[in-house]
Amino acid sequence: METVLASVCRQVSLPVREASEIAAARRAANELAKDHGLDETACGRVALVVMEAATNIVKHAGQGEMLLRRVTAGGVPGVEVIALDAGPGMADLAGSARDGTSTAGSYGVGLGAMQRVADEIDIYTYPGKGTAIWMTVWQRTPPPASWQIGAACVALPGETACGDSWGVCTEPGSFVVLVADGLGHGPVAAEAAEAATAALVARPALPPGALMQDVQAALRSTRGAAVAIAAIDATTETGRFAGIGNIAASVIEDGQRRQLVSHNGIVGSNMRKVQEMPLAWSERALLLLHSDGLGTRWSLDAYPGLESCHAGLIAAVLYRDFARRRDDVTVLVVRAQQGGAS
C-alpha cells in the first residue's frame, strides 16, 4: 500500500505578479527539487518549467499563483508544479503551444518548452476563465500508478502552518482517503489535522466508521477537527463514507454530482455515533472532498471539459476560483488513472 500525506508533501504557494517574482519562483522551485533529492539535471528542468509558466502568467494575465509540491511515486522523487491565472484564457490551445506563437510580443516558446521538458502536463484553459497548468518532473520514470491524486492544500494567508491536512492510501484496486480541518488556524489546528492523518496511516484497512473512532481517540488531546473518510473498492464498484463536521464530499460522474452526507460534531470532542453511508463507484467516477475554506457554489458544469482533466488540474481550478482566502483550504480529488497526461 502506498501512502501520500499532505504533511509530507506540503504545497508552497508563490504569488507571481512581476518580473522579480518570476526569478523568486524559479529559485524556490530549484531549492525544493534539490531538497527532495532530484539531481542537477532534474532540478534544472523543474526550474525551467516554473520560469516559463511564471513568465507566461506575467505576460498574458498580469498576475497569478504557482503551487509547488514534492511528490513521490514508487520511491521515485519528483516535483509537481501548478500554474494558475485568471487571465483571458486561450481560444486555441494547440496553436498557442507551437513555438513562435505569441500574443504578447515575445518569442512564443514558453508553452511548447513546458510540454517538452515536463514529464507530465495537462492544461485547462477557456476564454474568459483563465489558464491552469499542471505538470510533474520526475528524477526518473516512476512505475505506473492506478490512481490520480490531485490536491490543493494551502494555509490561511499570513500563516506558516496549515490547519488542514489530508492523506490517501492506495492499492491497485482500492484506496482510502481522509481530509481533516483542525479547529481554528495555525500550529494548534495543524496538530489536530495531522493527528487525524496519522490515525489513517496506522490502520488504513479499517472501514471508515471504525477508522473515525480511531481518529476520535487520537484527537482527544487536541482542539479537534472536522473529518471525512471514504474507502473505495474498484473491484466491486462500491465504497463507504463517514463524515463528521463540515468537510464536503461528492462523487462526480458524467456530469452528475452526488453529495455525500456528513453529520454534526467535532472529532476529538462531541462526536456522536458515526454513521457510514454506502456509495456506488465506477472507473469514470471521481471523488472530491474539500474543507470549508472552499466556497460551496462551484460546479464542474461551468468548466467545459474540466471533468476529463487530471485530478490535480481539477483541484487547482476549484482552488483558484472558489478559495475563500480567509481560511486554510484543501481540495482533494482522486480518480482512476486515465492513461496519463501527455
Rank of each mutant, 00 (worst) to 15 (best):
E80P: 07
T3D: 10
A195K: 09
A242W: 01
G75P: 01
G128A: 03
L306Q: 04
S299Q: 13
S13K: 14
H263L: 13
I244K: 00
G112L: 01
Q139M: 08
G268I: 05
P204D: 06
K59D: 14
S7P: 11
A118G: 00
S174C: 10
Q148M: 09
A190K: 02
A151I: 11
G110D: 00
E159R: 11
A151Q: 10
V154K: 01
W281F: 06
A47C: 11
L300M: 05
R220D: 12
R70L: 09
A132W: 07
V215G: 03
D321S: 06
G150P: 02
R240C: 10
S291L: 04
Q115L: 14
V188F: 15
M271Y: 00
G209H: 07
G87F: 04
L48N: 14
G265P: 02
A29C: 11
D164M: 04
S308L: 15
E237F: 15
A155R: 06
G74N: 07
Q148F: 08
V81S: 04
A86M: 13
A195M: 11
R320L: 10
P208R: 02
A210Y: 12
S282C: 06
E65A: 08
V317C: 07
A242F: 01
G158P: 03
L67K: 02
L286Q: 10
N246D: 12
T330P: 01
Q139K: 09
R284I: 09
A151C: 15
D214K: 08
A161R: 11
V331I: 14
R140I: 14
G75F: 03
G89L: 04
V177S: 12
S146M: 10
E253C: 09
R203P: 12
G110W: 00
V334S: 04
V58M: 04
G108M: 01
R326S: 15
K129L: 14
A285T: 03
T160W: 14
L289E: 01
S96V: 15
A86R: 15
S7F: 14
D328K: 04
A155V: 07
L300S: 02
R335D: 07
L206M: 14
R320F: 07
T72R: 13
A228S: 07
L14Q: 08
Y303I: 06
A24K: 13
G163K: 00
N270H: 12
M135L: 08
W134Q: 06
A113C: 14
Q11F: 10
V79H: 01
T160R: 15
W134H: 07
A199V: 03
I149S: 00
D292C: 02
S299P: 09
P208H: 08
A42Q: 10
A23G: 14
K273I: 15
G184C: 02
V227E: 00
L279E: 03
Q115P: 09
G150Y: 00
V227F: 00
A199G: 08
A234E: 09
S7I: 11
A155E: 04
L260T: 00
C162S: 08
D39M: 10
Y126P: 11
